[in-house]
């Protein structure tokens, strides 16, 4: 059978170094304080957090020796919990928390378009390999391919600069791509991201 010990005696023992007294105090008032917090916040995890913060304040005050015993331990703890609940609601109203559900996920709409580090490294490697492959092409094909792909020029502009017809420029581009594929196949190179 559990013997009920007066709060003031437990506090006195705790201040005098009896850690067991704190355990008895916490267990004695656990339900009442947790119930009080839960009735305000309606969330078990938040209740747990506020309960913990409440007793951290209690422990600090008792250990510092600034607690004045007037036989009102529970109302004092309740007041601390009450103030922490107010702090919690102030904080949540300043920074409202949004939680997604199974049917709606905010990250479906707000996403980071950048490649992750692994894909970025693969892309850089592919770009580097591709530059080496382009160097293998005949000069006229390489010239057309670089103008079209890297400088984004139209075939009309390419034909004007290189002094060949549009059809010749188109043909050189076609052969450049065919030759690139051949080099890739011949050397078993994998260019995927």
């Amino acid at each position: 059978m559990e013997v009920l010990i007066d709060d003031s005696l437990l506090i006195k023992n705790y201040i005098n170094g009896d850690e067991r007294a704190l355990e008895i105090l916490i267990n004695k008032h656990n339900s009442r304080i947790s119930g009080f917090i839960y009735s305000k916040v309606n969330d078990r995890n938040i209740t747990e957090d506020i309960f913990q913060d409440t007793f951290i304040k209690v422990i600090r005050t008792l250990k510092r020796g600034t607690y004045s015993e007037e036989g009102k331990f529970l109302p004092w703890v309740m007041r601390i919990a009450h103030n922490l609940i107010i702090d919690h609601f102030r904080k949540t109203s300043r920074m409202p928390m949004f939680e997604g559900s199974d049917s709606f996920n905010i990250f479906s709409f707000v996403s980071d378009d950048r490649l992750n580090i692994e894909k970025q490294m693969i892309k850089e490697q592919i770009d580097c390999d591709l530059n080496l492959l382009i160097e293998e092409l005949p000069a006229d094909q390489k010239q057309v391919l670089l103008m079209r792909i890297y400088r984004d020029m139209s075939f009309k502009e390419i034909s004007e600069i290189t002094g060949v017809s549009i059809n010749t420029a188109l043909g050189r581009m076609r052969y450049a791509l065919i030759n690139l594929r051949k080099i890739i196949e011949r050397n078993n190179i994998v260019l995927t991201n």
Partner: peptide, 29 residues
Amino acid sequence: KLVKAKPETIQFLLDYSKSLHFVEKDGIV
């Protein structure tokens, strides 16, 4: 089920209590 703080939370508080010390020296805590 009654709302009650978990045993882990209570254990944390007890451990915190054991680890916490205040020392006063020349009026400074």
